[in-house]
Design a protein around this nucleic acid. Structure first.
Lengths: 321, 321
DNA sequence: TTGTAAGCGTTATCAA
DNA sequence: TTGATAACGCTTACAA
């Protein structure tokens, strides 16, 4: 690997001149510039970004961390981040495992968008205290250097359930995901709307899923065995709703005539299957997260959580309000 | 940000001693070690990986590059890479846009897995000549320092089409994706099997899609307008097959009774919709790609392309052979 | 217009 | 058991 010194020696100039040429400075004669450029080309010189980063102190790079590979919409989020970052001439590195200690470091990246729920708050707080800017998605942390960008789960689920009530549904079942802020909010909205409408809901009609299709399938079978048949099953996400639909189809339960089903996320499969659900604008959330992160990096100090609004998509697995 | 020197000063030792402690060396007294460790903790010291990388010359990191955000199975590939890399104590960075020049650099990453079709061969060849190890997916490049890990499209599509022939289908239509090695191979297999079975296929029964669901939908409408109704539509991927299915459903065409449909990829939606397709083991391909890359990095010299085998999944959008 | 030299944060060598 | 020093590849004052 040719280094800047090799180029300098070969061109008969000093390393600083090579550096200047390569960084678009104009304080050299045209012929020196040409010469340097041609030597770079001939030697196939590529600047060592590590050396440069060390010297310059920042490398205009942000990082995104996630760890759930079952969610296609993560790709949309990535696309959103990627698009915004490009406009600002920053680079993006995405990281999936425990390399955080290495990459969440001022020396390596200027900031981070965190979507990995396995990364504990305490870790993020530690980084934030060191002035490392972070945007967290799907969780709320209201401290300096951390900005939350979260889906307004509560409002979205409220809209959905209120619509179902207006359709005339009276007997509800809810399939929850694993313990998380998302799930708590979605369930709370569900419960609140039922309460406001004086529709009773018993604990035993809450079924414990884990956001996977399989768990939805299993819970649906339990529902079919129970003596209290709901007329609508509200699922905390689309994957579980798809599992429910599969179980219902296998057991000859007509959707929505016998039992209606709805989800949350508006995944591609849900769309294709005509599932009533809540559309979360994922590209936009990625884009916004990146935008906020760069604002923090450039010195912004607005750390108020940002809520993303959503829309209910009424499709064929429920009546329409 | 506290640096190694700050720690050294605070602990009353030299930077080298701090470095030694932090790198697990044992050439110091236990009490010095303890002291250093406690100071590190108190100051919240984190090693600057850039400084370290510059000194050490390598940072045990590989990179993965992609750019198509419409394919959920990319997440499976990433998971495969991520899993393998973890076992070898390497880090993975994923990169989506034009940051390649920066990251595909010996100083930054030790090697790269390339799945971005927009990255030209010429660029990769240039890197390979500089001894930068690369694993390319979905394209074949048979030169030193580049290993190809590709799906055996030809064999897979042959199996599928041969099965269709055995089902008794006689009038075929093919919807191709955009111009690419994948598409060429899939179509060649399709055509070869028909030829071998003396089943005629005219150019006008090849429809030009672009791998999107929308294009499948549009082509399906064209097919319905044509005077030659096929009894099976073979699509170069699942997305297009889903588009076809949508169009057929809207027009009252029964699948598979009136016209059968099949795809390629075994996406989640295809699975859910019962589409006959070819299952590509994506997790495994990522895993293997990572494995081969690390082999190259450690000095391996087996650059022969590796073909990944696949299985046909017979489902309800076609008869079964 | 060009070159010299210091320094970014670390580790390795070697001497104490 | 410790520390001084050089070096990794680059940029940037500042000097020439």
């Amino acid at each position: 690997m040719a280094g800047i010194k090799d180029v300098a020696r070969e061109a008969g100039v000093s390393p600083s001149t090579v550096s200047n040429v390569l960084n678009g400075k104009t304080n050299m004669s045209p012929k020196t510039r040409e010469l340097v450029l041609s030597v770079c080309d001939r030697l196939g010189y590529e600047p060592n970004m590590i050396g440069k980063s060390l010297k310059v102190g920042s490398n205009k790079t942000i990082m995104f961390s996630f760890s759930d590979f079952e969610r296609k919409f993560y790709l949309s989020i990535i696309r959103g981040i990627s698009e915004y970052v490009k406009t600002k001439d920053y680079d993006l590195i995405i990281c999936t495992n425990k390399s955080l200690e290495k990459f969440m470091n001022k020396a390596f990246t200027n900031g981070c968008i965190m979507l990995d729920r396995r990364c504990p708050d305490s870790f993020l707080l530690k980084k934030a205290e060191k002035n490392y800017p972070i945007v967290v998605m799907d969780r709320i942390m209201d401290v300096p250097n951390i900005k939350s960008v979260v889906v307004n789960n509560y409002a979205a689920e409220r809209d959905l359930v209120q619509g179902l009530v207006e359709c005339g549904y009276k007997k509800f079942a809810f399939i929850g995901g694993f313990e998380s802020e998302d799930n708590r909010e979605r369930f709370k909205a569900f419960k609140d709307v039922l309460d406001e409408n004086h529709i009773p809901f018993k604990k035993e009609h809450y079924y414990d899923g884990d956001y996977t299709k399989k768990s939805g399938y299993q819970m649906a079978r339990l529902i079919l065995l129970s003596d209290h048949r709901p007329d609508v099953v509200v699922c905390a996400n689309d994957e579980m709703a798809l599992g429910v639909i599969k179980a219902f189809q296998e057991n000859g339960v007509k959707i929505p005539e016998d039992i209606a089903v709805c989800g949350f996320d508006d995944t591609e499969t849900a769309r294709m299957m005509g599932v009533t659900t809540v559309d979360v604008p994922n590209f936009e959330r990625g884009y916004l997260a990146a935008q906020y992160l760069l604002e923090l990096i450039e010195g912004g100090t607005n750390f108020d959580p940002f809520l993303i609004t959503t829309n209910v998509k009424w499709r064929s697995t429920t009546k329409h309000p």
